[in-house]
């Protein structure tokens, strides 16, 4: 019987003989990888379980993979909180606007530096690539943003990171790989450069732009530091990640008390006394990561493509 199994394996994959040692290796490997998945997923599932469990009950501990007393109260509480609702809107807004702006602008500049006859091609390329080697640093950037009047301003989420050099390089490589004949024939038809870019190059670049868009969207959604640094005094510009960061900071401060329970007072002020800071944190954690967790498995191949495209020298 083991003979036939071995035969099946060997016919499937290039005549690799399956000895006893190999079989043990295989078993260990599968066990190890399964364990790895458990370790990776458990914290998420545990957090989800806490967020779906009755808050006062959670304090007793012992919540692992499943809630003991199911409830949606925590979510109701979190989403009813107007600050958090508004922060969610800002998160969505910056993700959408930031992604579109980044993709469009990066593609446009990338197109110009693929035009061999463009007199500024070298200059533009080098000016961008040089910035990979240095950056002004936190404080000079902060002072610049302040002097530009972008403090307490929504556009500070969009402008400073508009074009990433890395994006520029992978889009440029992609355009250079397009069949020259298509571009040439459009040019002979008298298309100007912007028309060429907008109606020919842009549609052809969808695969690479999808990758850039995904990375940009994840970046925008996950970003909290610029909110903290520039817009922390304006609650109207707060984002979901930043709200979670504030909660985290509070529970960090209360670590010394050893109890996760009485970390801060702002939970429970809406009349729903069943909510605890611990449960709010778990719920916020899920809300802040849910969009990514839901979208990611379906778009995984685009993410991976971006990673491997980037490995090829620009």
């Amino acid at each position: 019987m083991s003979q036939s199994a071995a035969k099946a394996v060997s016919s499937k994959k290039s005549r690799i003989r399956s000895s006893n040692g190999d079989r043990i290796f295989d078993i260990c490997n599968y066990i190890f990888l399964t364990l790895l998945m458990v370790v990776t997923l458990y914290p998420f599932l545990n957090t989800a379980a806490v967020s779906l469990n009755n808050a006062t009950d959670s304090i007793k501990g012992g919540i692992y993979l499943l809630p003991r007393i199911w409830t949606l109260d925590n979510y109701a509480y979190v989403l009813k909180e107007s600050t958090i609702f508004h922060a969610t809107l800002i998160s969505i807004l910056r993700t959408v606007i930031g992604t579109i702006a980044t993709v469009f602008c990066s593609a446009m500049v990338a197109y110009t530096i693929t035009r061999q006859e463009y007199v500024l091609r070298k200059f533009v390329t080098i000016a961008f690539i040089l910035t990979m080697y240095f950056n002004g640093g936190l404080i000079p950037n902060f002072l610049l943003i302040r002097d530009l009047g972008l403090i307490n301003n929504f556009w500070v989420y969009i402008f400073p990171g508009l074009i990433g050099v890395f994006n520029l390089i992978i889009i440029r490589s992609f355009i250079e790989g397009l069949p020259e004949s298509i571009l040439e024939s459009a040019r002979i038809d008298g298309a100007g450069d912007f028309k060429m870019f907008y109606s020919i190059v842009l549609p052809l670049c969808v695969p690479v732009l999808a990758t850039v868009a995904l990375f940009s969207a994840v970046y925008q959604w996950n970003q909290w530091f610029d909110v903290f640094l520039y817009n922390s005094s304006n609650i109207d510009l707060s984002t979901l990640q930043y709200e979670l960061q504030k909660i985290l900071q509070n529970s960090n401060a209360s670590l010394t008390t050893k109890s996760a329970g009485d970390a801060f007072a702002n939970a429970g002020n809406s009349g729903a006394n069943t909510v605890t800071p611990f449960a709010v944190r778990a719920t916020m954690t899920i809300v802040a990561s849910l969009p990514i967790i839901m979208v990611y498995p379906f778009l995984q191949k685009y993410f991976v493509k971006g990673m491997t495209v980037g490995g090829v020298k620009g």
Binding site: P43, F44, T47, L248, A282, M284, T285
Partner: peptide, 10 residues
């Protein structure tokens, strides 16, 4: 793909 904020919370 999750933010460090979420990761730190976890």
């Amino acid at each position: 793909f999750i933010s460090w904020v979420v990761a730190a919370s976890i």
